[in-house]
Write a protein that binds this DNA or RNA. Structure first.
Lengths: 125, 125
DNA sequence: TTTTTATTGCGACTTATTTGCAATAATAAG
DNA sequence: CTTATTATTGCAAATAAGTCGCAATAAAAA
């Protein structure tokens, strides 16, 4: 399916590239000046994930967070690094720490979703 | 607060110890013969987690799964091992692989939630 | 047997995310 | 520039997971 450029897409990408962190749909929407429909934002985010532009992290609060793929060469391994959720400032960052593991023989791993939580550097200071 | 023994608690623990895997509230309820209210099951599960008898895993589908703590000495680090979600049989297992990482300096980690997904040994065979 | 209060069931509620559908707008075609 | 095509959007409603208040029930102690 062909893709078209829209204000929503541009705005979402801009917000995400500015913060560098992983953001929830709500946070993204709040950062965007213009009013965009919730469903639309989700659709844009999901599309970007499909296209390998963003990766999705599901935190231990059950919510989805989205971040720009910087080192997600392999689509299947998008998000193949640790994420950190600060319970204080409710922020999610991509840590520059790759998730390292050797699956038991016979297991095929196609997705990695690793989230550490606690207090981030800024809040701990 | 004092704890009382009830059929629900016994049933939940029995189901979980029999499978050895991590189960969703729904799966647990289905395995129990008698009818138990959803809210009650959640309350029992949450209580068990608080008491360090179970640990909770939030999978990348956003759902909670519960498993008996076997090697969860440190309560704060409960679930400090990888989990595997099979996209085929929708089963979640605790892998005997500890999650190993060194958080960036300044970060305080109090929780670990790591889920790999793909095809499990049985389904891949 | 009575008392105390943890536990349960019920129903309603919240929150996150998705979906159908008709209206709108980006882009290609003429 | 105008028109045609169809991706995208907004809206409203639907799903789904999990939680909560409250009155009724039932462990366990007295």
């Amino acid at each position: 399916m062909e893709r078209r450029n829209t204000k929503t897409k541009e705005a979402v990408l801009e917000v995400l590239s500015k913060t560098g962190k992983a953001m929830s749909r709500e946070a993204i929407e709040n950062k965007i000046q213009t009013d965009i429909n919730r469903a639309t934002v989700y659709r844009v985010l999901n599309r970007f994930c499909d296209d390998g532009i963003l990766h999705r992290v599901v935190a231990d609060n059950g919510k989805q967070y989205f971040a720009i793929c910087t080192n997600c060469e392999d689509k299947a391994m998008a998000g193949n690094h640790f994420h950190f959720r600060c319970l204080n400032c409710e922020t999610i960052e991509c840590l520059p720490i790759p998730v390292d593991f050797t699956p038991p023989s016979g297991y095929l791993v196609s997705g990695v979703n690793c989230v550490l939580s606690g207090t981030c550097k800024d809040c701990a200071a």
